[in-house]
Write a protein that binds this DNA or RNA. Structure first.
Lengths: 171, 171
DNA sequence: ATATTGTTGAGCGTTTCTGTCAACAATACA
DNA sequence: TGTATTGTTGACAGAAACGCTCAACAATAT
């Protein structure tokens, strides 16, 4: 039940934008730099937030992305659905017809309750709830997961293509 | 945030055992048949439940698995942790030290709240809560996900090794 | 002994995830 | 108009996770 990088990076990007976009849009390149995410990847993460009506984008010099609504009007449940897709823990929760046993299933209601619990937490929250904390220190970040797994990734042929960033993700 | 088959099959196996093991243990082969899961796979799913103290196993003829405690004493939160591992949505929720930004992270507390919400639902529930429903109809089940994806799995060289089971999972 | 049943680890094919690259579209500005 | 800048999109690739099978093994009953 671990979240993917899309949800984690995407949510942090939103916080970043809300923090640094006072009147002008924020360049993706800057978000990528501050959040230690590759620009190429961030573009794909931000895409759904734009088409989903959370962000507005402006191309060309002086362009970037900015919030389409005020932070208090951005529901995190919508953000999560755009970033991660449906929040339901099984397909049968949302689409009972995919399973002939749905009506009489002993476990389906449990999966539904778990899904609802997550949904409820996110329904109660807006982007503002992530900004209340006084951590404007968005620069610097976490050791990426790959660094925590094996003792030595060894980095064959001295390739440090992703390692030279040094740190990237986590929360 | 979809559950894997381990959680789904494992939970259904527990319900199956609670239903069909009145005094004698239940053979894995029978659970596998009723739940439409392969025996080989079920063995691996059941393993953690045995080592985790949920199930007792007896080898040899007349053997099988049975509940080590009464259903009302089996907390679903423990079952889930054995089947799925930690319920936390990110590593930093449980181990803040994996991430230097944990203390000041804008998003970490959100991930923690979601994790807690799931944890709380499962903490309130025991296996009994899955047995209350009068669906002893555990036989037959769902169309496996692989059947819903492509139109035709095609089954190269007429191999129906897993296809001849016809249906398997879902809830 | 032998058949039965659970236990464990290795491994394999597929899918998903994470991320990169390249071509492209739109805009600002000279 | 042209050029640099910025976002948009799709194809793709490597890595990891997932789902599952197989085979060797251990324990038990008869």
């Amino acid at each position: 039940m671990k979240l993917g990088t899309r949800a984690r990076y995407g949510m942090r990007a939103l916080v970043d934008i809300a923090t640094y976009s006072k009147d002008e849009p924020v360049r993706l390149k800057e978000i990528a730099r501050r959040q230690n995410v590759s620009l190429s990847y961030l573009e794909h993460i931000v895409g759904p937030l734009i088409s989903g009506g959370i962000l507005r984008s402006i191309r060309g010099p002086g362009g970037g992305v900015s919030l389409l609504r005020k932070p208090e009007d951005i529901q995190l449940v919508q953000v999560m659905q755009l970033l991660e897709g449906s929040l339901s823990t099984t397909d049968c929760v949302l689409n009972p017809e995919v399973c002939p046993r749905s009506e009489q299933c002993a476990t389906r209601s449990l999966w539904a309750e778990i899904s609802d619990a997550m949904h409820e937490v996110l329904s109660r929250k807006s982007l503002t709830d992530l900004l209340d904390r006084n951590d404007t220190v968005l620069e610097g970040s976490c050791v990426p997961q790959s660094f925590r797994r094996s003792q030595k990734p060894v980095s064959l042929s001295g390739n440090e293509a992703s390692g030279d960033r040094g740190e990237a993700s986590c929360g």
